[in-house]
Design a protein around this nucleic acid. Structure first.
Lengths: 132, 132
DNA sequence: GCTTGACCTCAAGTTGGCTTGAAGTTGTAC
DNA sequence: GTACAACTTCAAGCCAACTTGAGGTCAAGC
């Protein structure tokens, strides 16, 4: 069993964030020693999963839906599959953008506005914003 | 010259957002007709650039630094190059995550926690969170 | 000449994901 | 037995990027 500072040290998450995650039900502490929370070791795995989800662009609410609230992380395969697909689409978009930016950097022409490549990038960007 | 509702219609940005962008200096209106703002057509280009920047994960402040405040979008090539590199790193990370998620979906083993692939993904995720 | 509707300003509210601060409690070291 | 650091709770604050709302103005159509 780990106290909050040890868990913080191991994961790099500040204690405030760990308390917050417990408060919203993302992790659990398994008892107290006096006032102090005690966490089981496998909470580190859960935290890694949470970090993973955030990196992939999921909100904490989505992550909770994906990994469940109970003790062991129970992964929802169907949802994960969908999310992998979304992630894939995002990667494709970012790739277009990256290439587009590099093009702009190298394209010495003053008029990007007329450049078909540039226009294509902008269409991608606009499409994405429209979706908000 | 376009009034705000026409600009909104063309770009898909709500009028409130356009006013907000003007307020923080991201776009300019070029005069009024009575009370009503009038925008030049090329503001749509600027808005596309802004959308582009956001899609690439830049804050509005960063975008302002990149495209400048004056009339014509003046792109900062050096910064853009850096940002393309960052974007590239992000793409690499997301790719690892995507593949990792797909692996989890297909890996019928109960114990992802022991799977080296899964561990690798988690390391990436943790590293990223650490950087916040 | 009055109603309507599209615009205007300015302040305040919203969301997510936390952090910060004040005030209290506890186990350990001296 | 007391000082201390490390925890605790709870409320409030913070940030970006907007949105919403109240109350006002203006041009056009009937």
């Amino acid at each position: 069993m780990l106290d909050i500072s040890e868990l913080s040290r191991r994961t790099g998450f500040p204690a405030s964030r760990l308390r917050y995650y417990e408060e919203i039900g993302l992790i659990r502490s398994s008892g107290r020693k006096g006032l102090k929370r005690l966490f089981e070791e496998d909470v580190t795995t859960r935290l890694a999963l949470i970090a993973l989800g955030q990196t992939a662009g999921f909100s904490l609410a989505e992550i909770r839906a994906l990994i469940g609230v109970e003790g062991k992380p129970r992964l929802d395969r169907a949802r994960l599959g969908q999310q992998a697909d979304r992630l894939n689409a995002q990667i494709d978009e970012l790739t277009v953008l990256r290439d587009g930016i590099r093009h702009i950097v190298n394209c010495s022409a003053e008029n990007h506005l007329d450049c078909p490549r540039f226009r294509r990038i902008m269409r991608v960007a606009m499409k994405r914003r429209g979706a908000r």
